[in-house]
Amino acid sequence: MSAEVAAEIPKGNGWEPNILAFCCNWCSYAGADLAGVSRFQYPPTVRILRVMCSSRVEPAFILKALKDGADGVLVAGCHIGDCHYIDGNKNAEIRINNTKKALAKLGLDGRLRLEWISASEGLRFSEVIRDFTEEIKKLGENPVKEVKK
């Protein structure tokens, strides 16, 4: 997570989840846009990062986000078959599933989610964010310990 994104995170006593969402440029980012212009409400717990394709999201990015204190990571892409790059999202699915297995071994299961959200599914985007926020609230804060630099 960059310093800019980290600076935006509210620091107060009432803990709110802090979710990083990787949205693909062609479907999910447009879906988030639609949620915005249609004024569908969703909790302000999510920071959206635009990537060109969901398969651009390397497992290393997800691990780094969790290491730096994100409570949850959402990867959103086009529905299977709709990928702008033909089969990028199939690769993403393999990668994310493998990363989920690695996270389960570390005791961080449930903190990574893969969703397919198309450009016309603004409502679905807001529902996914709401649902994921509830889930992260149940799981609680990220157990990663701070270390002195």
Partner: peptide, 19 residues
């Protein structure tokens, strides 16, 4: 190599209580 995925994994596990 591999964008440091194994490095990130080890760093992450070093900061968790673990199994």
């Amino acid at each position: 190599a591999h964008l440091g995925v194994f490095t990130e994994l080890a760093e992450l596990s070093s900061r968790l209580n673990g199994n």
